[in-house]
Design a binder for these strands. Structure first.
Lengths: 322, 322
DNA sequence: CTGTTAGCGCCTTCAC
DNA sequence: GTGAAGGCGCTAACAG
């Protein structure tokens, strides 16, 4: 008991005793067993989780960076899992994390089915969604300004004089897919331009598929003069095709790319702070978790909070070269 | 007790009883408390950790991808933490993970001080090192062929006719820093060329510093005609300078870059499967952890295993463009 | 096949 | 200021 008190740094213990205990503890290399500690107090682990489709996408890697920052800062660990965009796996991984009694988790859902994310399904661990708003459940969430970003990107192409614009998008069923398309469509409509449905491709977020789709768009009888890409995978796929293409095709796309300033072709990207998405998500989560926080909210108190991360358009190359 | 048995799927329980229990469990939404379970059995969590300097570096992100694959496949969770190249933080984070009774961890150490990674310091959780071999401790490790890769890269520049080659490297004290420098030096020596010490810069792995160093190298009275960069941060920093530079300067560097085929300048990169580093590390770790594994080894049995990931040189652009 | 006993390591509570 | 009792949820070992 005295040892326990000394280790926790509790007061009401004689100084010499404390010193003796701590010396012995150091000598033995003893470490308090966190499991037992939490078992008794019934608390969750100081652990938060992140469930995404794939860490290989730099957007999710940055999301993790941001979460890690905030988590570590508050003494929490970060547990990461990837679903590969498979709903079944998402369900399993989320359930698994809940069973580990983690304090809460951030999920970038791979579908519109959010039933497995409701509070009851998670033994009460709070959830925060990132990149997608909740459907049928009430939780906090962090969004990127998908609509606004894409609207600006499309307007840029139109300002350059393009009228026949191809769209490489994400599945229409996904939030980002539909919002970014909506931004495209709104910009076209506001400019009085028609969308050529045969120049719209929507597919999963993979470079290969984007490449194939871009190739098809440019092989049409009346090829587009510009491409609008809905995320970093599509942008890279499209650029792979464009750099082999004879005629110059303009491009604008969603998501910044680290070394875009080194690319051969000119284009514009919708940039935003992806790590900030992670930081905000972690912050929202910890507000519902940390009993220490002054501004803490009950784990599932009514009303969900929302944070929107702004975007801005960057035009590459940013500087003129030889 | 019967409930416990039913849930664990243990045999020696009547089928109707089991069914009744499972039905009730499902109805109540009951979840077994993993903490209590492990407390009793003394087992570690089915959790492995990864400690790196920064997830923002794509190399580490890929390492995490590989580990995550193997971990999830075996039912383990992955805990990630970043040290920011600070030894103190590394010590804290490693100790913290050990206190959480995780099954083991993979560390990319930020220094040569590995004392905090010895078995005794970790309540027996095994450690695997990645990218750096152990110093003064005996643990398994996964390396990249730093020397061979850099040797090949430098030889490539020499084959192009370069004699005055600048080197943008990592701190000499780090393993990758010294090995990659050694590869450079050996290739130069084998070609009968002198290293110009004033054209060798070693610094921390950050794009800004690499950029500044590259700028200095090219501002010298007798500027180099080629640059050799020791990792992806240095490569990007150098390219930022080169694309503004009048005279064409050749470049070769360590680490592949996702969209290097889209870059404006020609160069060669030492490529390797970074995710494979993570997979191998996780595999080595789980061999010492999983009691189920047929080829399991005692957590700290003598003799450390070693895996070396091969590299190959890729020349960009890979295809000729308009 | 099912139930009882005891204890994992820590901490809350209450005596001394 | 220190220690003794008891329990968190689960399961190994043993009884019935």
């Amino acid at each position: 008991m005295t040892v326990s008190r000394a280790i926790r740094g509790e007061r009401g213990i004689a100084e010499p005793t404390r010193a003796r205990v701590l010396a012995e503890v150091a000598a033995l290399g003893y470490r308090r067993n966190d499991l037992a500690r939490r078992l008794r107090s019934g608390q969750a682990h100081e652990l938060i989780g992140l469930v995404v489709t794939s860490l290989a996408n730099p957007f999710y890697a940055q999301l993790a960076v941001g979460m890690e920052e905030v988590a570590t800062e508050q003494g929490f660990g970060l547990l990461i899992a990837a679903t590969g965009a498979d709903l079944g796996r998402e369900r399993d991984l989320v359930a698994d994390m809940a069973a580990r009694r983690i304090a809460g988790l951030v999920v970038v859902p791979c579908s519109n089915d959010h039933d497995h994310l409701r509070a009851e399904a998670l033994s009460g661990s709070p959830v925060v969604l990132a990149a997608t708003p909740p459907r049928g459940i009430e939780v906090d969430y962090v969004l990127v300004d998908d609509f606004g970003g894409m609207y600006a990107a499309c307007r840029e192409l139109i300002a350059q004089g393009h009228q026949h614009i191809g769209f490489l998008g994400l599945p229409a069923a996904s939030w980002t897919g539909s919002e970014r398309y909506r931004g495209f469509a709104a910009a076209m409509e506001d400019a009085g331009l028609e969308i050529d449905e045969s120049s719209v491709h929507r597919h999963r977020s993979e470079v290969d598929q984007a490449e194939a789709a871009a190739r098809r768009l440019l092989a049409q009888p009346e090829p587009v003069t510009a491409l609008l890409t809905a995320n970093n995978r599509n942008t890279i796929g499209a650029l792979r095709v464009l750099q082999q293409h004879r005629a110059p095709i303009a491009l604008a796309g969603f998501d910044d790319i680290e070394s875009a300033d080194l690319f051969r072709l000119p284009f514009s990207l919708v940039a935003y702070d992806a790590a900030q998405v992670g930081r905000e998500a972690a912050r929202l989560l910890l507000t519902r978790v940390g009993p220490t926080s002054p501004e803490s909210v009950a784990p599932h108190s009514g009303g969900s909070q929302r944070v929107i991360i702004p975007t801005h358009l960057v035009t590459y190359p940013t500087l003129v070269t030889r």
